[in-house]
Design a protein around this nucleic acid. Structure first.
Length: 226
DNA sequence: GCTATTTGACCCCA
DNA sequence: TGGGGTCAAATAGC
């Protein structure tokens, strides 16, 4: 309609990124990060639609991270998740930038998940420590917190069957692939974990997450983001 | 009333 | 030209 007249001529495409991280998970698409669903697409030659998520902080700090979730045709309990971009909202500088941009007291800085560095935004003590404020976010009132994980330990209550770091330029995901089928099978911790919806009640997440401290799947040797 | 989700349309790229 | 990725209005839920 008329809205088309105001749309920009160009759009960013995640596929233009040089690398992507492919993860196959069972049962749920949840990974502890705060994603916002922005699209759904029926894919040719696929029985199931592909869902598109972007970081909930995209509009706050311009975090470019996106992911695609698609249910496997062969194994209905398997979800293929491909991550694009890097979470600047979770990195040290990104967290600082976020705090600055929001002009919030640094003490109210939200807990953010760290997908690639242990130097993230935890302001004190344990990376699991929650901030008391809780209302530090204005736009994401229902999801005021994420969690900060140690490097390479980003899976929560999931059985991860495979993680691949893929260079879209040339490599179809070969040497970097790692079979993690021997990882602990910590199945869906609660009904709050809903496949594809990527919605998680924070209270239940707290309970579940702390149950798994020390039980996270070890991704040592796997580079989730290059 | 605010925020997230849904879904059709638009646009880019092979 | 068609498939796939993203936008944004409409809608639903809290």
């Amino acid at each position: 309609g008329a809205a088309a007249q105001t749309r920009p001529k160009r759009r960013m495409r995640a596929s233009s990124e040089s690398t992507a991280t492919r993860v196959e998970k069972r049962w749920t698409a949840e990974d502890g990060l705060i994603w916002r669903k922005y699209g759904r697409k029926e894919i040719t030659h696929s029985k199931h639609p592909r869902l598109y998520f972007r970081c909930s902080y995209k509009h706050d700090i311009g975090c470019p991270a996106t992911r695609q979730v698609q249910q496997s045709d062969d194994d209905l309990s398997l979800y293929v998740i491909t991550y694009f971009g890097d979470h600047i909202c979770c990195q040290g500088d990104g967290a600082v930038a976020a705090a600055e941009r929001e002009e919030e007291d640094v003490k109210k800085q939200p807990f953010v998940i760290n997908f690639g560095s242990a130097t993230a935004s935890s302001t004190s003590g344990s990376p699991w420590q929650n901030s008391d404020g809780g209302d530090g976010r204005s736009k994401i009132s229902r999801s005021p917190h994420a969690v900060c994980l140690p490097e390479g330990r980003a899976e929560l209550g999931l059985k991860v069957t495979k993680v691949e770091t893929t260079s879209l330029d040339s490599q179809p995901a070969g040497p970097a692939a790692a079979d993690l089928s021997s990882s602990p099978d910590v199945s869906c911790p609660s009904p709050a974990w809903d496949p594809l919806s990527c919605c998680l009640e924070w209270d239940q997440f707290i309970e579940s997450s702390f149950d798994f401290v020390g039980e996270f799947i070890n991704f040592d040797g796997i580079t989730l983001y290059q």
